[in-house]
Amino acid sequence: MKKYTFIIIALFAFFINAYLTKAQPTTKDASVKVTGEVTLPLDLKLADLQQFKQTEVTRKDRDGKDHTYSGVILSEILQKAGVTLGKDLRGENLTKFVQVTASDGYQVVFALAELDKDFTDRMIILADKVDGKPLLPADGPFRIIVQDEKKPARCIKQVSGIKVQFAK
């Protein structure tokens, strides 16, 4: 009797343990969460990006060659989320910045004014394609492309979050 209780308990512990440590993840689709100083938080999947106007930016990658990236101008996504751009980008709103996070934890920031059409013609896009093809898994599915910036360090790959914040 004792032996059976032990076996039952051992089996139970084994399954609980297996369940806790190895809960087989169901593979999900990547998305970009837009949060912070927004009126409408967004969680954008690849298909959602197609709802926006598509823009192309050409820049060199680490291989030294020109590539054409396509995607959506970042400020248009932020506008959809209700971020203070255009005529509202004045006063204390000029102390806002945009923190972009990648799935490996890497982070970069842009001043909000760096993204606004009234301040600059330089385009910063959230790209999902390179030379007409989806980004490689190691780069995508979403990547920020900064037109003409000399270093590629802010062309952050595997973007998972965009957060608008006030500088303190």
């Binding site: 190895k22 993840p25 593979t27 990547a30 799935s103 490996d104 898994p137």
Partner: peptide, 18 residues
């Protein structure tokens, strides 16, 4: 990987063994 790391939290294949 036997232990899939942060994939078990995010469900993303790119996070396997991270």
């Amino acid at each position: 990987p036997k232990d899939v790391g942060i994939e078990s939290l995010t469900g993303l294949a790119a996070d396997r063994g991270r």
